[in-house]
């Protein structure tokens, strides 16, 4: 095994450790929210510090790799992708903390009817499943799976777009639940962001493995295909 392979493996290992922590945070955020479990919520928030340490450590490892090994091609793409995945993981961790803070600010559990009509739990489960599958795609270098995750984000967006009207309508009939409704709306908004961040991570996996830039492609369609693909052609 060459010298740089050992360094890159260590980097990947560090990122996986952070990934596990963040997955635990997000998963526990869900449990804490559904069970109004304040202890668990406190634990999630506390873990944020550890995640931040990983964030700093991984950035530093990437900086060192770039400076000392001047990686190229697939190695360079791995380092660049790791930098971005790291940033997105850290944000997902923050989201889990944010959700847990909403839990800490409330006494009881959420009204089951409101959870049901907004499909908030379904949304949370899908966000968790996407995040989990994204991790598997990263470990297996499976870009097909990464591409599949990009499509799944649409479901989260759909639930998010409808949630505002649904909650507004519910609150009109149940004015006593305003605080609860607003908190749930904020959580749904955060979960929508998790979907975006998992999408970003999937895009980085594709970039690292296939040297293809897929981000921003869905909006622009194939209109400006030329910007980067032109560079990709050899003589």
């Amino acid at each position: 095994m060459s010298h740089i392979d050992i360094e890159l493996d260590t980097l990947r290992g560090k990122l996986m450790e952070m990934w596990d922590l963040v997955e635990y945070q997000l998963q526990s955020g869900r449990e804490a929210m559904l069970n109004a479990d304040h202890d668990l919520a406190r634990k999630v928030v506390k873990l944020g510090k550890k995640v931040n340490n990983y964030d700093v450590k991984i950035d530093r490892m990437c900086e060192n790799l770039l400076a000392l090994y001047t990686p190229v091609a697939v190695d360079l793409r791995l380092v660049l992708a790791t930098l971005k995945i790291n940033a997105n993981l850290e944000r997902i961790g923050d989201t889990a903390e944010g959700i847990s803070m909403y839990v800490q600010n409330r006494v009881g559990t959420y009204n089951p009817e409101m959870l049901d009509i907004t499909r908030a739990v379904i949304m949370y489960d899908e966000a968790l499943a996407m995040f989990h599958d994204c991790r598997l795609a990263y470990i297996a270098n499976d870009t097909d799976q990464a591409r599949a995750i990009l499509k799944r984000d649409k479901m989260l967006n759909k639930i998010y777009r409808k949630s505002e009207d649904i909650i507004a309508h519910y609150l009109r009939n149940n004015p006593a639940s305003i605080e609860e409704g607003l908190a749930l709306l904020s959580i749904i908004k955060k979960l929508e962001r998790v979907g975006d961040q998992v999408t970003n991570i999937s895009e980085e996996i594709i970039f690292y493995q296939d040297a293809k830039v897929v981000k921003h492609k869905s909006k622009k369609k194939n209109k400006d295909k030329e910007d980067r693909s032109d560079d990709m052609q050899s003589q």
Partner: peptide, 12 residues
Amino acid sequence: EYAKTKTLFTSP
């Protein structure tokens, strides 16, 4: 392989 240098060193 013969290509633009930036191509060869980023995505051979």
